[in-house]
Computed example of a mutant assay.
Amino acid sequence: MSMQDPNDSFPEEIAAIKEDLENNDTAAAAAKIQEYLERQNNVPLNIAITGESGAGKSTFINAFRGLSNDDEGAAPNGVTETTMEVIEYPHPNYPNVKFWDLPGIGTTNFPAKKYLKLVGFEKFDFFIIISDTRFRENDVNLAQEIQKMKKKFYFVRSKIDNDINAERRKKDFNPEMALIKMKEDCIGGLQKQGVKSPQVFLVSSFELHLYDFSLLHQTLERDLPAHQRDALLFAMPNINLEIINKKKEAFQSKIKYWATLSAAAAGVPVPGLSICVDLSMMVNVAVDYVAGFGLDKPSLERLSASSGVPYTELLEVLKSPLAAVKITKVFLLKLLTQLTSTAALMALEEGSRWIPLIGIPLAAGLSFTTTYRALNYFLTELADDAQRVFKRAVGLNTSV
């Protein structure tokens, strides 16, 4: 693989970091690296969830965020109307992704004609309209008003697991045909009420890996602007192996950038500076990998509670030393020195910078290679762990 020359021009953010390094201000450089990384992970995404009382809005919001209904920070649910105002629920690992639980349309406080203005429609990127039975007049009115505002909306038919269990009592029960009929009934009903080409998704908030939740993600991914797709992807629960692979690809696309940043730091002739900066950067990237794959301790504990698989059993399938631990610079340095090829490259980089004329370019090249290999290694190990955890949580064979 060819290496980008560390002396090439850099984006404004990296130029500022390089200036701090040249002034031997490692603390400022590390802070800028963290700030830049956080900004990349903080593209805002605001998702509006609406529907009539009892439709399953709160449970859907909690499931999307990887929470059970009784977890701390979960949206409250119950048999009575719990949403009397617009309530914001940030994702626990990606607070830039926010779910907004909206009051039911058509009530005295939120009449249909004024609904979008009253809830502040302009701040939402798209709307999900939820019903646990058929979609009613208020749902259709809302969809038509959203369409006038040129915003995207999607219909979610919730509690599909309950409907399938009820269908099982029939002698001629066929799950595939039952799902097809449910979707056709929803689409037909909406079309009769004047909705053109309605997009309907059948979802069970307790079994997101089943039914249409994956299709919903694919549709949202297709409709969102490019800069928001990763925000949605990383906030998605690991509902299937495809999602995990997509997350890996998204993370992998940024590795060359971080390796180039590492090379820029290595271009400053100060002993130990490159390693210090690399560690600050790699800690943040590794923490991001762990959070994105849901392999941090709180996420694994929530998965254990929702899946019924003991937390200790989820830990048993983990192989990466980065999963379910607190990642620090000291911890990461120890891990890197245990990797023979990486340790050798780090030592060679520090030694090479004192070679006349070619030392600095050589050190930069070695720094690029070291960072690139290390982040690829961390990413591959964690992605494999995420697949094993998913399989264990849904009861699939996790043997490798």
Rank of each mutant, 00 (worst) to 15 (best):
Q191H: 00
Y289H: 14
S197I: 03
S205P: 04
L208Q: 08
P271K: 10
S214C: 03
I239V: 15
M236D: 11
D230V: 12
V330S: 14
L279C: 05
A226H: 08
L314Q: 06
A324W: 03
M236N: 12
I327D: 08
F251C: 13
K326S: 14
V309L: 03
G292N: 07
F293N: 04
V270Y: 08
S306E: 07
N238Y: 04
L300I: 05
A259P: 09
K326C: 09
E316F: 10
V325R: 12
E221L: 10
R302W: 07
I187A: 05
A305W: 01
L318H: 04
E242A: 13
D212G: 02
N238P: 01
E316N: 13
P269A: 11
V203M: 03
F201A: 10
Y311F: 15
H217R: 07
L314R: 02
E221W: 12
E249M: 11
E207L: 08
L224Q: 06
R302M: 09
V309A: 01
S274R: 02
L333W: 08
P271M: 09
K254D: 08
Y211C: 02
E301G: 03
K297L: 14
V270R: 10
T219P: 00
V290P: 01
Q252K: 15
S306K: 14
N240C: 10
R229G: 10
L232M: 09
A291E: 13
K254C: 04
G308K: 01
V317Q: 06
L322I: 07
L273V: 04
P310H: 06
T312E: 15
A265D: 03
V325W: 02
L322E: 10
I275S: 14
E313M: 07
M281K: 13
N245F: 00
S320V: 09
R302E: 08
K247Y: 04
L215V: 11
F201T: 09
L232F: 06
